[in-house]
Each structure stands twice: as structure tokens, then as C-alpha cells.
Nucleic acid binder design. Structure first.
Lengths: 219, 219, 219, 219
DNA sequence: AATGAATGAGTATTCATTCAT
DNA sequence: GATGAATGAATACTCATTCAT
């Protein structure tokens, strides 16, 4: 109606995607809050300001919705980290590959400790729900692959450039890095208050630095 | 006594604790397999070779059962690790505090990768289920406290004895260590096959060693 | 309209309220028959010709359903009594306030003894279930308030008009009247056959008449 | 042991009956509090300071226990009323049959309003639970028979002695009287606070007096 | 596209009862 | 006589999914 002039009439696709975004936002909230099983489709629809039936209508099934959520959350976190690294680069000037890794890890933990988005918590929750052997969230496995690849690429680049020692295995260190940040993040949820987050961040950075930096001249 | 040979004359107390152990075994199995929510009390009772009602009868509620399971699993894992360390000590002779840490971590991962007990998987699953903010398994928080304490004590002892560098914070490194092994273990579940477990173990050992070992003479 | 002949084209709202009425009918039946506790939601759904899950779907909880039932039953009984009084008025002509009370009580008992509707029995059953101290059916308390008010208004009107003696307390007589009809109705259920219902009706009428009528000239 | 001397060693029968009394006390409490269905045998055993299994052991089934409770409660209330009437007789001197009825009713309500014993509440609760048509507590029907008989005997005696008018039906008035006190008592439970108990007692007395007293000479 | 009515399977929990000690 | 372990049926409530509107 009155949307005629400047406001670009929303296409079907856009309207669809608006609904979907709202639903995924609500899902992230609720999954972060209650876990996957207790985040009912009805509650997701309602928190999104829509009907109880909309989630099924859009995603077909709960599994599909969670899959989509996992994917979107991973993208979203990736973006935050890239943005953070970019900020660091502008502040500090050039960063070696090792520095990139350290900064990335640190930014992830900083965001997670200080100002976690629902997506971040939701992704962790979804990860946690994959531990049972009969469980599988296809989106998670894919997210891991992407993540491993990113770390491994960085490590290998650093090895070529000399900022990372050459005798380490990039693949297993990718697992180690992702495991460390996920594990530390997961622990901080239960033990909030017990853990001094700044010190933990420092320790992670120091530990990775010690492990990845080229060996100093040892006599 | 009145214990006529091998006759199944058990006292009430014996029957009770036998039942409980059987139920906890079954619960560990099923929780590891399906997760907490999908491990129904009925299925636990039946897998224990008993009735559907027995779990509630014994533990009063599902939460209480999970609590008990978490505690027992933590104890059980602790024991495995102590036994493994003991074996290592007998094989290698004296171990420094740093070595103790490295060996412990390695043994945990070895067991987890190669021959995980239901308890170990179950504990990880229970941990994963604590990620939602509204969730809480009292037993987990306690298990963490015990675990942190163990690592921190080791680190501090090592610092006094000189096998661990003095300028690190024992508490935050405890979080890091537990986070690392939990996180790596969790990842290995989803990405079994992707991850070369031996290399990951080596990387963890190397990384911790680099971080904790007293600094070599740097020029 | 779009209401094609008698076709079962019902709007959502119509379907909803039809379902609810059917469920409340079934609930009245079953509560009257078995009591609240033994009238399971599943049985109510099924007797209503619907699924086991429908009662919860509509009313949210069993308590809410019972509440609604109590309210509806009270309304329904009220209506029967009003209709009965109206019939009496048409038959006999003008009725004094005292007569209104006597006729109302008599009609209630007549219906209850001779041709009780499920609602009437159900309301009595619900009332009986409020006797335990920890129990409460909010709908009942409200039903009582309405009922007391009705009787008290009548009494006071009669006192002003002179058909009821002035020295009685309208509130406590309201309790007495409601207590009497409820109590007598309740007894008649257990002792059906023992009690000659016509005589009891007469006795109630006589007793109330003697108590409420203006004092005759006593020498 | 030390019970040897004066303390009469308890016979089996006595011990049995001690246990039973304790169980019935506990049952009265719990039934009054929660209703029959929610007063579990286990809770009764435990409140009696015994084991969960004792109630079944003694009474065989829950129904049998409730039966026994109903019987004992009725006896107990009867005794209170007799005692109260006795007190009144000593205080006021001779009482006509009409006075006996009025005093009995008044005492019942007084006890119920001011200082109800668990038995009294329990009996009312049990009565309430007999309203569903498929329900039956054999003890209640018997209690009613005894009660009706008592009132009817009194009325007939009064009619012969001239203290009660001759043209009323003793049986239906028995129902009326018991219904009135039960009904008023039942209402007072839900509407405690709404009801001015003293005024209600007065109204009951006045109403019965007006109904039963020999007709004054009406011109 | 969107709503929400309806379904039915699943689950924790309660509880009377049985039975071994 | 007394205990309490064990059973299994019953039941309120949750929730993904289907389908009519």
C-alpha cells in the first residue's frame, strides 16, 4: 500500500527471509537459554512474535531449523572474529600469522566472556548436544570442517612465512585450538565467577604462543 | 555365618547398592548413547535388567540420578588417571610435576580416544548439557572444583620444585588444561575419523610442555 | 454467504468453542461419575470423541479445566433454577420473596433428586473435593460468593417487603440455605433409596418457611 | 525389659492396636489435609513414625484403612457430641428432646468451627469423596445409618414427650439435620473468613427450633 | 504465506501392592 | 510383627508434526 514510493516493495523472498531471520534469532535465544530439547518450536514461533506453527512452516522440521541455526551462528561468529582481527590490524599495524591466531583466539574468548551473543551461546549449546553418540547435527560437522580449515591454513601460512615453527602438525593443532577455546568457553559457563576471565585469556595466549612460536635459540 | 556358601542371600542393603550400581551403569550407557533427555528413566531401568519404576524409586528424580552419575563418573575417571600415572611411574621411574601433568593429560586422551568407558562419555555428555544457561547439574560444578583443585595443586607443587615455570597462574592454567582436554575430547566425538588422535595427543603434550616448562635460556 | 448450505464449514473459532463445550460435557460426566482424580484427561478427551491430548491443549492444565467446569456448572444450575422459578411464577402468579426462596430450594432439590444433570452432580463432586485443607478450586469459591449473594439479596428484599421476618441475619441464612441443599443433596447420593425424596423436600420447605416467615401472633 | 513391674507387658493385641491407632491418627491428619487420593499409604506410615509398608501390613488395603478411619472418626465425633451434651445437661439441668437436638447441632458446629479434630475434618473429606457415583466407602453408609437413627430416635421421643411437634416426619428431618450440619461445615471450609461462625450457629439453631418446636397457638 | 486446532507418542512421577528379608 | 525393595499401572503434561482454514 503506502510502501509504494521509495520503500522497495519487499519481494516474496525478502519477506520469507525476514521471517526466517526473526525465527532464527528467537531460536538462538531459546536454545542458548534452555537447550535444544526444551526450546520448543511453539516457543520459538512465539518469541519471534509469530504463530506457533511458523517454525515448522518455514523449516519443515526442528532438525532442519537447528541445522540452519548452527550454520548461521558459525557464520556470525566467524564474522565477529574477522571484524575483531581487522580492528586489531588497524590498531597495531601488520600482524604475523602467529599474531593472527593469538588475536583471533583472544577475541573469541573476549567476546564470549564479556558480551556473548545468543548465537555464540547457541552454537556452544548445539555443540554440547552432539556429544551423545547417537546424535548428529550435520551443520556442526560442517562448521568444524570450516573452522579447522581456517586454523590450518593460518598455521601453514605462518610456517611458510616463518612466524610459526615448522615442526608442528597443522591439522592436529587446529583441533587443539578449537578444542581449547570451546572447552574453556564451556567451562566458563558452569563455573562463571570461579574463573578469572582475563587471566584465562592470558594463559591461552601464552600457551599457544609458547607452542607455536619458532624455537628461540636454545643453547 | 548365615551366608550359606554362594547362596544369593543378600541383605537389603546389599540388594539396594547392587541395584544402584546396575542402574548407574545403565544410565551411563544410555546417557552416553542418547544424551540425558533421550535416556528415559524407563529405558535405564530396563537396561539395568529391572523395572521401569526402579530408577525413580532409588534416586527420587531424574535430576538426582544424573547428579549421582556425574559424581560417580568423575570419581571413576579420576581413578583411571591415577592408575595410569602410577603405571607410568613404575615404567619410567621418577616423574617431575610437569611430567605428571603431561602424562595425566595424555592418559586421559588415550583412554578417551582408544577405549572410552561409558562413564567418560557420559560425563562429557552431561557437561555438554550444562551449556544452556537455565541448566545446572550440581554434580558437574562440584566435579569441576575437584578437578581444578587437582591441577592447580600439581602446578603449584611443580613451581615450588622448579619443574614448572614460576610466572604462570595456576588457577587459570587449570581451566585451560581441563578446557583443552574436554574440548578436544568433545570435538573428537563429532569428528571421529577427521582427527588423527595420536597427533592430537602429541600436540597437546607439546603445547602444554612449551607453556609450562621453565624457560630455557633465551639469548 | 460462504456458508454453503449445511456444509461443515466452521471457522477456527467455532471449532474451538465446539470442542471446548464437548470437552466440558465429557468432563462433567466423568467427574460426576468417578470424581476429579479418577477422571483422567485422557478419558475426558476420548469421551468427548476427541484425542487424549485435547483437554490439555485447550485448557492448559487439569486444574484450569476443573475451574472452567465449576463455573459452567454453576451457571447452568443457576439457569435451571431461574427457569423453574419462572415456570412457578407463571403457574401461581405473584410470588413473595419468601416464596421465591422456598420454590428455588424446592426446585433445586427436585431437579437433583429426580433428574440431575451431569453438571449438578459434577458441581457437588467438585465441592466435595474442596474439603481437604490443602485443596482449592478457585472456581468454587467464586461460585459460592455468587450463590450467597443471590440468597442474601432475596432475603433482604423479603425483609424490606415484609415477607421475611426482619430479625434474621441474611448472610448467615445464606450459608444455611446453601449448606442445607448441598448437604441434603450430598447425603442423598450415598443413601439413595434410604431417603424419601419427596418428604425431604417437604421438610426443607417447611423448615425454611418456619424459620423465615414473619412471626405469627404468638400469644 | 524395664517394663516388667507395674507396666503391664503389652500383649500382641495391644501392640497391634497401638500401631493401628497411630496409623489411623496419621491417616486422619493426612486425609484431612490432602484428601484420600493424595494421602499415600507411604506417607501415612511415615507420619505415624513407622515404615512405609506398615499401613498395608495392618489393613491389607487402602480401602480397608479408609473404611476403618471413617468408622473410628464417626465414633469419635459421636463421643464428642455426647460429652458436650452431657456438659450442657450438667450446666442447665434437664433438657427436653428438642433442646438435645439443638444443643447437639450447636456443639457439632462449635467444635467444627473452633477446634476441629483431624477426625472431624477427615470424616467430612471422606464424605465428600463419596459424591462421585462410582465411589463408595462402605463405612460412610453405615455411619449415616447410625447417625440418622440417632436423630430420628430423638425426634420421635420428643414427639411423644411433646417437646417436638407431632406432624413432622422424623426420617426426613434426620436427613435434613445431618445435611444441614454437614453442608454448613463443608461450606465453612472453603469460605473460612467469609462466614461469621457464631451467626451461622445461631441461625441453625433458630431455624431448627422454628421447624421442630410445637406450633405456638396461631390465631 | 500464515495460523492455530488437533493429534498421539513420549516421559517423569506417583502410588498401591507384592514379596523377600 | 515389621521393614523396605521392587514392580508396573496410571496419569498429567510436553511437543513435533499434520492439516484444515
Amino acid at each position: 500500500m503506502s510502501e509504494k514510493s521509495t520503500a522497495p516493495r519487499r519481494t516474496q523472498a525478502e519477506r520469507r527471509s525476514e521471517s526466517e531471520e526473526a525465527l532464527l534469532d528467537a531460536a538462538a535465544d531459546l536454545v542458548a537459554e534452555r537447550g535444544i530439547e526444551r526450546a520448543s518450536l511453539a516457543s520459538i514461533g512465539e518469541r519471534a512474535g509469530a504463530s506457533r506453527g511458523l517454525p515448522t512452516h518455514h523449516f519443515g522440521s526442528k532438525d532442519a531449523l537447528i541445522e540452519r541455526l548452527a550454520r548461521r551462528a558459525q557464520d556470525c561468529i566467524q564474522d565477529s572474529m574477522v571484524a575483531g582481527v581487522e580492528r586489531a590490524r588497524r590498531a597495531v599495524g601488520d600482524l604475523s600469522e602467529l599474531d593472527l591466531i593469538l588475536v583471533s583466539v583472544d577475541i573469541y574468548l573476549e567476546i564470549f566472556f564479556d558480551n556473548p551473543s545468543p548465537e555464540e551461546r547457541a552454537l556452544l549449546v548445539i555443540w554440547g548436544s552432539t556429544f551423545p553418540s547417537s546424535s548428529s547435527v550435520e551443520g556442526m560437522a560442517e562448521a568444524h570442517r570450516r573452522s579447522y580449515q581456517g586454523w590450518a591454513d593460518l598455521i601453514e601460512a605462518g610456517q611458510e612465512a616463518g612466524s610459526i615453527r615448522g615442526d608442528i602438525d597443522s591439522n592436529s593443532f587446529s583441533v587443539l585450538i578449537l578444542g581449547m577455546i570451546r572447552g574453556v568457553a564451556g567451562l566458563s559457563l558452569t563455573d562463571a565467577g570461579v574463573v578469572d576471565t582475563q587471566l584465562v585469556r592470558d594463559s591461552c595466549r601464552a600457551s599457544l604462543s609458547a607452542a607455536l612460536a619458532p624455537q628461540s635459540h636454545v643453547t
